[in-house]
Amino acid sequence: MARSSLKDCTGLHVVAQTPFHADGALDLDSIDTLSAFYYGHGARGLTILGVSGEQAKLTADEAVQVASRFIQVADGHRIIVGVSSASLAQLVTVARDAMTEGADAVMICPPRGIQTDEDLMRYFDAVFARIEDTPTVLQDFPVHSGVRMSPPLMRRLVDAFPQIGVIKEEDLPSVTKITRLRDELGHRVRILTGNNGLYLPQELARGADGPMAGFSFPEMLSGVHDLFAAGDPSAAHDLFDRHLPLLRYEAQGEWGIAIRKEVMRQRGALNCSAMRMPGPVLSALDKREIATMIDRMTTDFHFDPGSAD
């Protein structure tokens, strides 16, 4: 059942931002414009409540509210809900409620504290005993989780738990990990890649099925994938290279999430670029710098920092 529902999970699945008002309250109305922005730029689905979606700053009830609104405006697109939590009870609650609301799948990253392969197998045995046949994306993100999963171990997980239909691969170096995963698993599961799309052309060339990333120009992510699929890697690299300065600029941890949200505010996808506290607050100079980088992707533009507020 899980593999059947995720077998066509290819192409761009954007890691969506969570909109907030300036005071930190949820901005549910902006989910509508944000979703339209993503779908209008080639997203086949969304992954919501991921790390860059500030999931850890939401209560369980808020997470379900956010999921429900994204699902309401999905218009046939796939919605994957991040449910990772140090609390197994919270993971299960959010997963069940999100699936009841109409989500297509959940995404789970193993929690910190898992030290051995057997610990990991026991953990997922406990998870799937509770969420049963829920279609699942396994997130391999050791920089965040501290948990390292070898390709043979990931094959054990897929063998034991057929609910796992997609692997989100974010271990580094991702390209060699993708090659090893294909050797271990063939095409039994889909592989989508994260790390904000920084290595997307090489990952697609190694056999990834698409990006699961949150870059503020999703049309680049979808375009690079589609050009590779059409057999034109040269054009895909040209499109990627044009966006590389901003892509690199966004790759700055939590500050990069603030940058990404500001880019999308400037592009009309968000009413407010605020992150929920604790989180960075951009200055007027930061915002002018971002505007300059956006302009330079289409025209040459001189930035004068002395004119900023």
Rank of each mutant, 00 (worst) to 15 (best):
A236L: 10
S283I: 08
D241H: 04
A230P: 09
V281Q: 15
G279H: 08
M212V: 03
E250R: 02
N271M: 00
S307D: 15
G253Q: 07
D295R: 00
D232C: 09
D300T: 06
K261E: 14
R182D: 05
R267K: 03
H302D: 12
Q252H: 06
G279F: 05
I191Q: 02
V224E: 13
G207R: 01
P280L: 04
P211C: 14
D295I: 00
I178E: 09
P245V: 12
L247P: 14
L221M: 14
V175H: 06
P211H: 08
G210D: 12
L285I: 12
Q266L: 10
I257M: 07
A208L: 07
F303V: 13
P280S: 07
R180W: 06
N195L: 15
S307I: 05
G223H: 09
L227R: 07
M277G: 04
H225L: 01
L285N: 07
Q202M: 03
R267D: 06
R180H: 09
T176C: 04
P211A: 15
P173H: 05
I257L: 08
R276N: 11
V281L: 09
L192S: 01
I294C: 06
A229E: 15
K287T: 14
F303Q: 09
L192W: 13
H237I: 14
R190Q: 10
M275C: 08
Y199T: 05
G279Y: 08
T299Q: 13
T179M: 00
C272W: 11
R288H: 15
C272D: 15
L246S: 14
I178P: 02
T298K: 01
L227Y: 10
A208I: 06
T193E: 13
F228E: 15
H225K: 03
P278V: 13
D183K: 00
M293C: 04
Q252P: 01
A291G: 13
P233S: 12
L185N: 04
H225Y: 13
T299Y: 14
S216G: 09
M275W: 09
A229V: 03
P233Q: 11
S174A: 12
P211K: 02
I294T: 04
P201L: 10
G197Y: 11
P211R: 03
M275L: 14
I290P: 03
F217Y: 14
L198T: 07
D286H: 06
L181W: 02
R180L: 11
G256P: 04
F217S: 08
A274W: 03
H187C: 09
Q266N: 01
F228P: 08
V263A: 07
L192E: 10
L227G: 09
G268A: 03
L239N: 08
L181F: 03
T292D: 15
I257W: 03
F240K: 01
P211W: 11
T292N: 12
L247V: 12
F303I: 10
R296S: 13
L181S: 01
W255S: 05
D209L: 13
L200T: 05
V189W: 11
R188S: 11
D183C: 00
Q266E: 06
